[in-house]
Design a protein around this nucleic acid. Sequence first.
RNA 1: GGCUCCUUCGUCUAGUGGUCCAGGACGUCUGGUUCUCAUCCAGAAAAUCGCGGGUUCGACUCCCGCAGGAGUCACCA
Length: 479
Amino acid sequence: MKVITRFAPSPTGYIHIGNVRSAIYPYLLARQNHGKLILRIEDTDRERFVEGATELIEDTLKWLGLDWDEGPIVGGSHGPYFQSERKSIYHQWAQKLIASGRAYADPTPSEVIEKYHKECNEKKMPFLFRNIRPENPPEWKPGIPLRFKTEPKSYTWYDEVMGKMTTGPEVLDDIILIKKDGFPTYNFAHIVDDTEMGVTHVMRGVEYLSSTPNYLAIYEALNITPPKLVSLPHILAPQGNKKLGKRDGAKSVTEYRAEGILAEAMLNYLACLGWNDGTEQEIYTKEELINKFSLERIQNSGARYDEIKLLWLNGQWIRKIVHEDGVSALYRRTESFWPESAKGYDDQYKIRVLSIIYDRLKTLSDLRTMTEYFFSDPKINLTMLTQNKFLQKFSESELENLLKLTISKLSELEKWEANNLQNTLNELLVITGKKPAELFSLIRIALSYAPFSPALNLTLEVLGRETSLARLNLTARSI
RNA sequence: GGCUCCUUCGUCUAGUGGUCCAGGACGUCUGGUUCUCAUCCAGAAAAUCGCGGGUUCGACUCCCGCAGGAGUCACCA
């Protein structure tokens, strides 16, 4: 049997990291089995619809590398893939239920329902509409909601993550199939769509676990074998025990992208939050995830979201890309992350800067703050020099002399190249009798006035003879 | 309140009756790599396996009870 999975978001805003996992797992399962992933937009709630949200969702998926086989943009033979365009299909299926006496029009005024609802809440009783089911429902016509006529009984089913499930008749109710505006509810629409689209594995958050018996009842009334059900545990907010939501500052995937998180790291982190292959591996490529993914190894308790670990993983991925594909591979991803001042500089120079700074990056946006002095002369800050813990014991004239000596030695260099520079620096240590910490700190600060920088010889090399000497001179004269 | 699910270091997790006085990773701390920051390397601290009973020669692992947490009970998905 061909595996067909789907990701079915509502276009109500951006996808935040609490939700993407329900796109990642279906993707992995589909790819692993050479099946299909369907993207379906569940836009039946016109009030919550947000303009542009669909595009945002598509962008997010594309960025993460989660391509879909059927859905918006790519099309497919089971369309349309927007629920709002499938109204007549739902109505056809609804007619089947009406014909078999399993659905009825509900003329109950909303005040009556609300009153009963309130009553149930006060008495701490579950709200069950079937208790006030109208006795002689009218014929169904637009403007009246259509309800499922349930037959309370016990259900047992198997959830691929949670295992064997059993519930009693008390959870079954006459749920709304078609709203009074003519659009179906999620409860009905997803069943129709999954069936029509041939979905074999329904993967969604655990919050749907409690309504599963009601879905099972509809499948049964429709004479359909339900697909495999996969409940995904929640991702928990960093604080408390609540599921991660926008209120907890759950950022959109797009935001992480803008902050310089790599798609590979994001995918790796999210896939492994609540899933592991039982080995001690931490870094997974998309291909490895596709190969190793398994439903049985999805965790069945919620997992807390930990941004620190994401950052660590991102650093690992930044280095992995450089080590495996070279600096220019990483450089291609950095375009929007350089400081303003880098604008006029060519690719070659920026690649050289990147090659000496990349192992310090946690996110690509660190480039903005960490490479400033490679592109514009830093502001001279003499207190930074004189207050430095290695330099404060020297007098100003001593510092000046050390700098002058450094300048003259470096000026003699024929080839301005890292190894030669290191040799000269070593010579200077011998000549001056200073400790590396002392001399090197002085030079480093005079060049960058930054809290940190790469190895001194590399910094000098990339900065170039002219710039380096000019900056050292400037500081020497300012002391 | 009903129903359902969940419960191993701070966090993500390994663990399917003995090889676990519980392993890995993040984080934390310490030390090393000619300055800084980071990387990398080495090491340390960190879980009476939610609690209480049982079964067993032996339980994190099986059974029962309890507690705590979460989800759900919408013309939202």
